[in-house]
Structure formats: C-alpha cells, structure tokens
C-alpha cells in the first residue's frame, strides 16, 4: 500500500511531462468594426496564453486596457463606457482545440470550443481557426465575430451611429514549449 502510494507521489511531478505545454511567445488579439462614420480597430499584444497539445486545452487572458487605438480618446471611451474595465479588468477564453493531429506538421483546420468571457459575461463559442506545428513552435490563428449585445455591452444611444453592433475579432498566437 505504502509502496504504491509513494510510487504515485514520486511520479506525480512527472505528470507534467505527459502534457505538451506551450506558452505564448508572441500574441496578437485585435478587433475591427465598420461604423457608419468611422471604423474602429484596436490591437493587443500583451495577451498571455497556454496551449496543451496533448489534451488540446487552451486558454488566454487579456486586459481590455491593453488594447491600443489610434485615437487615444476612443481608447479611454472603450474602457470607460463599453468594456467598463475597472469593473471587469480581464477578458478570457478557456476551452479546447479540436480536430487536429499532433503529428501532422502541415497547416490544419481546427475548431476552438469553449467559454469566452468579455465584460463579465461568459458564453460558449465554437469558432474555426488554424493550427500549425512547425518544429518547436505552434501557431494558432482564428477570426470570429462577436456581437456586442451577447456580452451585454451597451452602446449609449447618443453615439449609436458610431459603433457597429458586432466586431470581428482576430486572434494570433505563436507558442513555444514550456521549459521547466
């Protein structure tokens, strides 16, 4: 009994090795919307993400405040009025990449399924993307639409014509293996 138990305890730290953990080295999440008067776009390169190729599990975490706009005033309004970044300081995705073969070294069409949290609202999403395993690195890309009303993001009526009701989100990560 004790022998088996100790064996498990000894083996426990090695459990990590059975996972193929990757951490994002470069990240890029952007969104774009075509308003009636002006287009709105911003990008965030301070996103952190972990990918486990063994299980397909993936997660990313970002601060809305890190989105950079060309117009700084728009950036303030984005955080103050729409994302309410003081109340909801983080947005995240947590889920699984499905439909890939870890041994395949070509560009693969995959799907990401899981929970997207924006503005304090969590919803299940299922979006297409690509996965590319090249030597030591893994690239993950996806592009999907987010409807503002799904995440309870209210656009004040007074500026409604400026803001589209949905935005196109682009996600692009470059991963390298986690080295302990």
């Amino acid at each position: 009994m004790i022998r088996i138990l100790s064996l498990f305890i000894i083996l426990l730290p090695f459990d990590g090795f059975t996972q193929k953990r990757y951490f994002s080295e470069k990240s890029f999440v952007s969104f774009f919307s075509e308003g009636v008067i002006e287009e709105i776009k911003a990008s965030n390169t301070k996103v952190t993400s972990i990918l486990d190729l063994a299980s397909g599990e993936v997660a990313y975490l970002l601060s809305p405040k890190d989105f950079q706009f060309e117009k700084k005033l728009m950036q303030v309004h984005f955080n103050e009025k729409y994302m309410e970044s003081e109340k909801y300081p983080k947005s995240s995705f947590q889920g699984k990449i499905v439909g890939y073969d870890a041994a395949n070294l070509t560009l693969q069409q995959v799907k990401a399924q899981g929970k997207l949290t924006i503005h304090g609202v969590t919803r299940d999403i299922d979006v297409p993307g690509t996965l590319h395993i090249e030597g030591n690195t893994v690239t993950l890309r996806s592009k999907f639409m987010v409807k503002l009303e799904d995440y309870n993001i209210k656009v004040p009526q007074i500026v409604w014509q400026n803001i589209a009701q949905q935005v196109e989100v682009t996600v692009h990560f470059l991963y390298r293996p986690v080295t302990n």
């Binding site: 972990i50 997660a59 990313y60 975490l61």
Partner: peptide, 13 residues
Amino acid sequence: AQDDLLAELEKDS
C-alpha cells in the same frame, strides 16, 4: 494535473 490553464494565467497576471 489537468487543471484549468486559465487559473494559471490569472495567477501570473
């Protein structure tokens, strides 16, 4: 061992 990756990211941030 399988835990959620998001919690790890949150811990780091």
